[in-house]
Computed example of a mutant assay.
Amino acid sequence: MINPPKLDIPRSAGQRWFDRVTMGVFLAVVIYGIFSWPALPEEVPMHYYVTGEIDGWGHKGFLFLLAGIGAFLWIILSFVEKHPETHNYQGLTEENAPRLYRNSIWLVNVMKNESLLFISYLTWKIIENAFGRYLGGGAWDMAVFLVVLFGSLGFFIYRSFKIK
């Protein structure tokens, strides 16, 4: 379609719930970071070897950068979520637009929240490791995140073909 229809698709209760839970987790981690700030060492773990061992350190201000990236990403994806007519579709028609828009809104919502939850987890893990409470993980953290993220993406792409 050259000019996709602009429809008012209300957010579902599930989307609002997922946003609230994710934002609650993120704010809890940010508050934890703020209260932990005075006790944090000047250098915190920033990089992990594939086995989970810490192999890179940096200034504790990195935690603000990580939280800032998460907040920025969440805001941008929230804007994208509100404008499904700008998303890319195959076989969009006036008839199937509402179904495809809802699916696309869910896709962006899930990916937005999964990404912020992962950033929240990484921020919490860095703080815990900085205090000497080694949590391990390393490559497994990223592997699990990527499987979940691409699994969600695959699910919603598959679903878009089914609901046309």
Rank of each mutant, 00 (worst) to 15 (best):
K125S: 00
L73I: 12
M23W: 15
L107C: 12
G52S: 13
I75V: 08
D55P: 03
L73D: 12
N109L: 11
F118C: 07
A28F: 11
K112T: 08
V29K: 01
H59V: 05
G132K: 09
V144A: 13
A67Y: 03
P84L: 11
T93N: 13
W140F: 10
R11M: 02
A13P: 07
K60N: 14
A28W: 13
P84G: 06
G24N: 14
V144I: 09
M23N: 05
W37K: 02
L92C: 11
G138L: 01
F79T: 15
I31Q: 10
E43N: 15
D19M: 15
E42P: 00
V29C: 04
F72L: 05
R16T: 02
R133G: 10
H87L: 10
G138Q: 11
S104W: 00
P4G: 03
I119G: 02
V25C: 03
L27I: 06
L149G: 00
K82C: 11
G24W: 04
Y48C: 13
V50E: 07
N113D: 01
A39K: 14
E95N: 03
F118P: 04
A71S: 14
I69L: 07
M142F: 03
A139H: 13
Y48L: 12
R11E: 05
S12Q: 10
G33H: 01
L107W: 14
I127L: 08
W57V: 04
M111R: 04
L149E: 02
V30G: 13
D141H: 09
L73R: 00
G137N: 02
G132F: 01
P98F: 05
D8P: 02
E94H: 07
K60Y: 03
G70Q: 03
V110K: 01
F72S: 11
S120L: 02
G70A: 10
L63C: 09
G132N: 01
F72V: 12
V110T: 03
A143P: 07
L122D: 02
A39F: 06
E114A: 04
G68S: 08
I76E: 05
V147P: 10
I34V: 12
H47V: 05
L100Q: 14
Y101S: 03
A13Y: 12
L116E: 02
Y89I: 01
Y101N: 02
L77Q: 05
L66M: 05
M111K: 02
A13F: 15
L63E: 02
P98R: 08
F79D: 06
G33T: 06
Y121N: 04
L122M: 09
F118R: 04
V148D: 08
E95C: 12
Y89N: 06
G68T: 08
V29T: 13
G58I: 00
L146Y: 09
E85G: 13
T86L: 00
M1D: 09
L40I: 03
I2V: 14
S36R: 13
A28N: 13
V108E: 00
M142D: 00
G61N: 14
F64E: 10
